[in-house]
Design a protein around this nucleic acid. Structure first.
Lengths: 352, 352
DNA sequence: TAAATATCGGAGAGCGCTCTCCACGTGCTA
DNA sequence: TAGCACGTGGAGAGCGCTCTCCGATATTTA
């Protein structure tokens, strides 16, 4: 049974362009032109070719097309981690964050319509990075979307040096001539500061992400300078690592040092969730005793109780834009490096 | 500058097998044999070919190889959802769960060494499913790993009907002749029951996942029958949707109906986290007043406070096995349908 | 009306690779 | 020494497609 079916399957020759051309009564070249929408083809022939495509169930062969166009129709999504073995803690943390899913969703919305595949790549070691860049140079993919987790990541530079079209989501830590899409993290942080000050918070702290990670740095400096502008010369900052557990721990530390704290800005929603737990456990009312502002407006923010006041990070839009930017770059390698910075927005819910 | 660089880049012809052969002083065919490790080639020539490969920096052209072998060197990871628009809530939930990351990690560990790409596909609508199967039939990928989220998913059947090599992670809801890798969910649930009973819990409830989702069903029935075996004829079950928030809500419901509850089994760790919150808010001590057992042993379990007693779900191993199974199936389409069921294990931490 | 121009379809090369066939040793047996 | 099998390397076809030429036909201009 299985054998018979299988035989049928391997026996069925898939229709080729040649078949389509024969059915339509034109040459292979004409059929190709119609399918790829180039030059003016007689509308009548045009019609007949599409007819033949439908009739034969023709689908272009990717490999054959790829061979001559030198395009793979594949974009790689590279997650660059500091050290990725299977049970690597940071990687686990990363995938556990809604971040990844939002990015994938945004990318897919653009790539799907362009008929382009998304190939997932995860690199941790130096060797994996080198190998990846090699493969990329040899046309493994047409371009790369880079998600860089470590504070100092050699990958962006390697990619530009190799001349691989790439777009980063989140700016690179070191200046590298690479397209990127980022959020005005500093302005988002400033919004949080403005809100807390307007709510009359007097003793304000912050829970940050890992040091040297650009997005985290920008949030810290943006928050600090906005607070300074409001006359708060110094703001205590405790470092977390973007996980809920680290947020809870950091909140504890902050509370011990500043029992009179009445406002806190947390660099992402997941940590804010943890902070909420610690705050509640210490018997504080939210937002009456302590106002809490998160960052990202991820699904975690709405599901928190009370729902989290946070800074909206339009990740899906940003990822979609990154995909468009990359596609344009692939189309025209001479394109100048350009990046787009998105504006955050305050989303007021119940914690501040 | 950019122009010059780019020109250089597009000008640099990548080495082909022909070049390797010339450098090594053999024919293209021999070089190919060496590189693909077929037949016995004179050891000396063998050496010279590899030498030439290193010297030229040769990397095989995927498209060209693919064209003749009819293999793409790509495996698709299909996430089948009930309805995936960009801001679809379930999708968000799904990616927010550590589940996805663990699966990807497991797959990659096998595919990477096999030199195979992982292409991410997300299908929600019927049309997307049809289109996917069509592309697959036309050799878009050599095989598929299926992650099916909806309770009743037409995709598995469509895939088998189309003769596409596929392996599911988690058994299909309806019987379909497809390879799959699954966990003995019922036995895991029974372990939880045994533990709770051994701890002298008298009033025991359960928080389940969505109805009709096989994994959730199995956990419910496994738990119920084990409890029955211990003389607990009836166990109240409240349904959640695998998110933390739903777990918190479900726990509330359960507590209201059974204030004297002293043991609860929660169908995944994320919901167990929510249950912990609800329990603590109601003033109960864990595990003194109420013992809690989760499921999955995901990163959420260790980061919970107190750390969660849970049932280990070896997802990474399962995903790796699924990849191996699929690769074998691709190699030999006649392979009989076979599936492997993993055994869960109790991980005792602090909540029970 | 003839020539120049624009438009459009077809022939065919060739992308880089694998693999079948065949020719050529080499070492064995008769 | 002739005959044979076997091991090994090379020639070359061809996978399905795109795209450059080029020739044929329609359209415009002198």
């Amino acid at each position: 049974m299985t054998a018979a079916k299988s035989r049928v399957r391997s026996g069925e020759r898939l229709p080729t362009l040649e078949d389509v051309a024969r059915v339509a009564g034109v040459s292979r070249a004409t059929a190709s032109r119609v399918i790829n929408r180039v030059r003016n083809v007689d509308p009548q022939l045009h019609e007949m070719v599409w007819e033949a495509v439908g009739q034969t169930g023709y689908v272009p062969n990717r490999a054959a097309r790829s061979l001559v166009t030198r395009r793979t129709g594949t974009i790689a999504l590279v997650v660059s981690d500091s050290e990725a073995h299977d049970d690597d803690p940071f990687m686990g943390r990363f995938f556990a964050d809604p971040y990844f899913g939002r990015v994938v969703g945004g990318l897919m919305s653009v790539l799907r319509t362009a008929g382009i595949q998304l190939a997932l790549q995860i690199v941790g070691t130096e060797e994996q990075r080198t190998r990846l860049v090699g493969d990329l140079r040899h046309g493994q993919a047409d371009g790369v979307i880079v998600l860089s987790l470590p504070a100092r990541d050699p990958l962006p530079r390697m990619l530009t040096d190799a001349g691989v079209p790439a777009v980063m989501i989140g700016r690179p830590a070191d200046p590298v001539p690479m397209n990127y899409v980022d959020l005005a993290n500093d302005r988002g942080a400033a919004m949080a500061a403005d809100l807390l000050v307007s709510l009359d918070s007097r003793v304000v702290g912050m829970i940050s992400g890992p040091a040297e990670v650009p997005a985290s740095n920008d949030r810290v400096s943006g928050f600090r300078s906005a607070m300074a502008r409001h006359g708060h010369g110094w703001v205590p900052v405790v470092e977390g690592n973007f996980t809920q557990a680290s947020g809870e721990a950091a909140m504890g530390t902050l509370l011990r040092a500043h029992p009179d704290l009445d406002g806190v800005f947390v660099a992402n929603d997941l940590m804010a969730l943890g902070a909420l737990v610690a705050l509640r456990e210490s018997g504080r009312q939210i937002p009456e005793d302590v106002a809490v502002v998160g960052f990202d407006d991820s699904s975690a923010a709405t599901s928190a109780s009370p729902p989290l006041t946070t800074i909206r990070h339009p990740l899906e839009d940003m990822a979609a834009e990154a995909a468009r930017l990359l596609l344009a770059r692939v189309e025209d390698p001479e394109m100048r490096v350009s990046s787009v910075i998105y504006e955050p927005a305050l989303v007021r819910r119940r914690t501040a």
